[in-house]
Amino acid sequence: MEPALQPVSLSFSPWDPGFASLVIFALIVVGLMAVIMILTAWIGEKRENPEKARAYESGIIPTGHARFSYPVPFYLVATFFLLFDVEAAFIFSWAVAYEPLGVKGWLQISFFIIVLMISLFYLWKKGGLEWGPTTGPNL
């Protein structure tokens, strides 16, 4: 059964996706950010000072290469995080539409989760999750 005419309030329901509510939400977000940033920029006390502009490193002037070779594990962890984060996004959107998608949807998402779980075990086995010293306590 479909109602011929929707009350206006319903079109802004968070449970009922709609273009109008998204636009208004986006406007509120941008507006709030603008107010906060403009206020801080205007109200905040600003005294320029080379020390203040310098990076903080325990009270010492930071030195060393800016372009040192970046260790691979950081990159790996970042990539894995991205992958499994996307997984979460798919699972959430499936969970929201759980009822209309039915058993078929459940089977599809299960397949998706299992594939990703296998890949998780694979990279665990390959040592992708290893962190820290790899060569014993004293190198």
Partner: peptide, 11 residues
């Protein structure tokens, strides 16, 4: 090419 970090004196 190690990364140099000052740990202290304020820490």
């Amino acid at each position: 090419d190690a990364f140099v970090l000052n740990y202290g004196p304020h820490h």
